[in-house]
């Protein structure tokens, strides 16, 4: 068990490293270096960067030195909590991102929970009542979820909400709470707004999970141990939930690692369509304005968050599956 978690941790560290390299590459890709564009940006604003300031910045980021030195300096600054300046906003990147990162986490986790909370019972139902009306319905919804990209779904729902109810279903807060400080009322407002984006984000993953759960459970239902359980005299619902569902849960749980990155990815585009105050719209704006420190930092933070989430889910999986838990080596 410890080796399993250990392996996962090592892999997570490598993943974070890979993400940091990619984020660094994104920062480096546009032509010209950061300081030059910073000076140019400042000039358009009418303020002048002195040579001395420019020189300090160059040294701080190791410009002009080999690329790995620059990478190292950048990582070191990040380790100190300094993610650089956003050129677009002329404020530190951390300030610009602010609570948007946490709202991204909230939306993603909500979508993940919703995905699971719905996919599990629906998948079980579909398998136990194979070829029933409910099963066909679930299959149909599943295909919609798979075939309609979530940003299109968001668009359609937004349109329907607008035309049918004349209501704007986007956003995470009512207007009066948009910039309000945190309070219980604001949290409640957030919870009220959460289901629609969470559902849109979760639908594709849910469709996939239902298919996985259904297929696995159909396999498991034919296994002899189900007959054993039945022949003991257990009531049928208990037979199903204690044994085959429990076994089918394992492959189901192991997909969580791939569901989270998928949801986080989707949240970027969906946030844009629905106008959610997450990092999504910020990332797009930063990319279009070539505000690379902001963009790189967002990519880095999203990646790291996803890795942490995946790691947590892996540990959860160990806890669920005694075959791994009891493995002695």
């Amino acid at each position: 068990m410890l080796t399993f978690i250990g392996r996962r941790v090592v892999l997570a560290i490598f993943t974070v490293w890979a993400i940091s390299v990619l984020a660094f590459a994104i920062i480096q890709l546009p032509p010209g270096d950061y300081v030059t564009s910073y000076i140019a940006q400042m000039a358009t604003m009418g303020s002048v960067v002195t040579d001395e300031e420019a020189q300090n910045l160059r040294i701080q980021y190791g410009l002009g030195r080999p690329i790995y030195v620059q990478y190292y300096k950048w990582v070191k600054l990040i380790a100190q909590g300094d993610f650089g300046m956003s050129m677009e906003w002329r404020r530190p990147v951390t300030e610009v991102i602010g609570e948007r990162l946490w709202l991204t986490v909230v939306v993603s986790v909500a979508a993940l929970i919703l995905t699971w909370a719905l996919a599990l019972p629906i998948g079980v139902y579909s398998a136990v009542r194979q070829y029933s009306v409910g099963d066909y319905l679930a299959t149909f919804v599943g295909f919609i979820g798979l075939a309609v990209p979530n940003f299109l779904l968001a668009l359609v729902l937004l349109y329907l909400g607008f035309v049918l109810f004349n209501a704007h279903i986007g956003g995470l807060f009512s207007p009066e709470f948009n910039d309000a400080p945190w309070s219980w009322a604001r949290v409640w407002d957030l919870l009220k707004h959460l289901p629609i984006p969470a559902l849109i984000l979760g639908l594709a993953g849910m469709a996939q999970q239902i298919r996985i759960m259904r297929a696995n459970l159909l396999d498991e239902l034919r296994k002899p141990y189900v007959v054993t359980a039945r022949s003991k005299g257990l009531p049928e619902p208990r037979v199903i939930t204690k044994y085959p569902v429990r076994v089918a849960l394992n492959p189901f749980a192991s997909t969580i690692g791939y569901t989270l990155p998928y949801i986080v990815s989707g949240s970027i585009i969906v946030s844009l369509v629905l106008g959610l105050p997450t990092v999504g719209p910020l990332l797009l704006k930063a990319l279009i304005a070539q505000d690379m420190f902001l963009a790189g930092t967002i990519v880095l933070l999203l990646g790291v968050m996803t890795v942490i989430g995946t790691l947590v889910s892996d540990v959860l999986l160990v806890w669920i599956d005694p075959r791994i838990r009891l493995e002695e080596t």
């Binding site: 007959v227 394992n250 075959r323």
Partner: peptide, 10 residues
């Protein structure tokens, strides 16, 4: 089937 007549996770 003695191999699969017990649940593998209990």
């Amino acid at each position: 089937e003695p191999m699969s007549s017990f649940s593998p996770v209990h």
